[in-house]
Design a binder for these strands. Sequence first.
DNA 1: GTGAAATCTTTACACCGTCAAGTTTGTGGG
DNA 2: CCCACAAACTTGACGGTGTAAAGATTTCAC
Lengths: 201, 201
Amino acid sequence: MTDNYHHGDLKNALIQAGLAILSQEGVQALSLRKVAKHAGVSHAAPYSHFTDKQALIAAIATEGYKKLYEQVSAVAVHYQADPRSQLIETAWAYVQFAIDTPDHFKITFSGIVEREHDYPDYVEQAQKNFALIVEVIESCQRQNILQQGDSELLMVSIWSGLHGLIHLLLGNQLPSKLLNRVSAREILLFQLNHFFVGDTP
Amino acid sequence: MTDNYHHGDLKNALIQAGLAILSQEGVQALSLRKVAKHAGVSHAAPYSHFTDKQALIAAIATEGYKKLYEQVSAVAVHYQADPRSQLIETAWAYVQFAIDTPDHFKITFSGIVEREHDYPDYVEQAQKNFALIVEVIESCQRQNILQQGDSELLMVSIWSGLHGLIHLLLGNQLPSKLLNRVSAREILLFQLNHFFVGDTP
DNA sequence: GTGAAATCTTTACACCGTCAAGTTTGTGGG
DNA sequence: CCCACAAACTTGACGGTGTAAAGATTTCAC
């Protein structure tokens, strides 16, 4: 083995290299050639494992969903006994993931998927995350902490608020005037409060 | 005048060319060279009017904010007498802008602005839009349709829901199962209802 | 062991952003 | 009037990018 051929687990190494570049130089700097160089491999080597740059991005995005699921589900288990805290803290886990690794978050939710059939792994992980949040919401509904009715509609509404907050935060589109006054967590709590029964305006 | 030099209003022509490419081929295909060719000009000509590709994008984004302001303020005036409808319809105008010209919307809200000082026009238009929505919300507060208190905090919460919904819509990240059941407008109304006083869960 | 399949390299091409130098055009001061 | 100067635009070049094709090397099934 000349150390040049048959890296061993290049596919995964490329994903990890992509993540490293993503966290060090941001999403703008993520290129196939740079990923390849970072993995110590020729610039066309990635094409043995990914049909496309899109495919690499999809794999990185899938990884993002997996990591997000780990963190969110851990929080969900921890607050199992208290559905209200469970909803708040799982939502907060989303925000934290976005703040900690903004570029990974951006890629994960950048909407790479035009045709869902192209990246089944990605779709699977997305649905898994979706289902997890729906479960949290349904457990809130069972305890009458959230209103009864279409849990997916409720989920999308709450999820939208979450995503919008993150998107505005990462895009520097919230007036710093406001951010000096209230923290991201306070905004999140303020948002969520409008959905809880009883805590209404 | 050989028709080659001194185009007349190249700066604006480049922005329009960018918008054309954006609507025809999407944000991925937007390149300086293609914009230049589309305007019938050499590939380096844009550098006489924009320091950067970023600067062109900022100009296009600024244009997006202007167009958005026109549409939203027109709706705001139309529903002046009814603050509740005013909030609903201005929010819906946002969603429509995003659905009608998704790539222009994406660029406008892609968070190009790292240093706010770089593109003062962009920041100005952003703040103008922000202020407009805050006004709508404050007029709702005056009529006790929305809760009293920090209007900017309230605005950011509602705005987050709006942006999140749009982001998930444009990113194809809402389950089609749900979208077959409820329309984007119904999701928006469902969201907004949680903020109105009296219409509480 | 041998041939086929998988993995990786090399080469090549078109496109991209950007810079430097040169060319053309409009303009204002003498 | 004209001419120097500034602004607007072209040309050419550089390094980087995605990706396709062809060749080299290794592994693996038979």
